[in-house]
Design a protein around this nucleic acid. Structure first.
Lengths: 138, 138
DNA sequence: ATTTCTGGTTATAATGTTTATTAGGTTAGA
DNA sequence: TCTAACCTAATAAACATTATAACCAGAAAT
């Protein structure tokens, strides 16, 4: 927890209350909230927090490598970056589920001469819960 | 080429000039154009083509499984669906490069009980050209 | 051939997300 | 304390996308 702060300070990033709030919220969050959801939730504790600040902070934390941005639906979603993992998007219930799988191409660090720095894989289909309930998409 | 038409007709989709134009354009297109780019290019040949029609047509073709939507930058991008492949996004020159790799998880068709219908993997990094030119992002 | 109906296209308005701007406030260092 | 740099808040603006309504074309039926 404090190594996050240390890392950011080393990058010359000023740690304001607003930034810490966003970072903490994402860290204690198991789902993948949109910007609007993050803002709405933090407003309860910090009623003056501006939406623009949330956007700025998320962009900065992303640049600093502390959080990850997901391009799944129309709205961008964010999550704290723990370790490399991927996502399953259920076409039925629209949930996003974390997947603990490894990609051999990513591990190689390179493909066709292109240097890989990060990757993001999204699987689409019907999640186990929806299959059980017979809501199969087929 | 005519099997595309046949497939769409079998799905009960009316093949208008506008829809054919979008489909043909994507088929003869090696890059991954945005909606705006598709519209602008087709306007040269069909000056009255509406942007809304392009949106509608792309959505329909996507539903019909004839084209694929990419969520890479801010704007959605589209490409004709040839075979399953993935993408490399160069953080330096912002190009999108097709990758001919296979994902073992996708091949399995299932992960953690979730049924996989499609997937999309995006690798981020520095492409071979930019590495050669010394524009490495590091 | 004319009418009617269905569905597509166009043009435009509306929505919603994201970015830019500006003014004011806060922090860190001299 | 003073200053400079930076952050925040509020608002406006830009941009992509969707919804709406009027118009039009082609097919089916009379």
């Amino acid at each position: 927890m404090d190594n996050k702060i240390k890392r950011l300070k080393e990058k010359g990033i000023v740690l304001t209350i607003q930034r810490m709030a966003v970072l903490d919220m994402l860290h204690n969050c198991s789902n993948h909230p949109t910007v609007e959801e993050i803002h709405k939730k933090l407003l309860k504790k910090y009623p003056t927090l501006s939406l623009a600040t949330v956007y700025n902070t998320l962009e900065m934390l992303k640049q600093a490598g502390e959080i990850q941005e997901l391009n799944i639906g129309k709205e961008k979603r964010f999550e704290s970056l723990l370790e490399s993992h991927h996502h399953f998007y259920c076409l039925v219930c629209e949930r996003i589920i974390d997947l603990e799988i490894a990609c051999p191409t990513f591990k190689a660090g390179e493909i066709d001469g292109h240097k890989i720095e990060s990757m993001q894989a999204i699987f689409y289909g019907t999640c186990a819960d929806c299959r059980e309930k017979g809501k199969d998409n087929a």
